[in-house]
Amino acid sequence: MIITVNGKETTLPENPARTIDSLLEELNVSQRLYVTVEFNGDVLDRDAFTGTPVKEGDVIEFLYFMGGGH
């Protein structure tokens, strides 16, 4: 299955049970507990991570907190 993650085409083994929540773990995404997930153009509520299946062609952006400036 091919999805787009942060602008890169990413090939993943077929897994019908894959959700946004499991993808975060599978890809070892940093700031996993706080990262914002933009799913096909919309910011996804954190509550929806476990209930949102990942399908062929999905476009996913992980948006990270960056708190520095000084």
């Binding site: 990270y64 907190f65 960056m66 708190g67 520095g68 400036g69």
Partner: peptide, 9 residues
């Protein structure tokens, strides 16, 4: 604006 290590946004 935000920065962290080698990344910014």
């Amino acid at each position: 604006g935000g920065i962290l290590q080698f990344d910014g946004q």
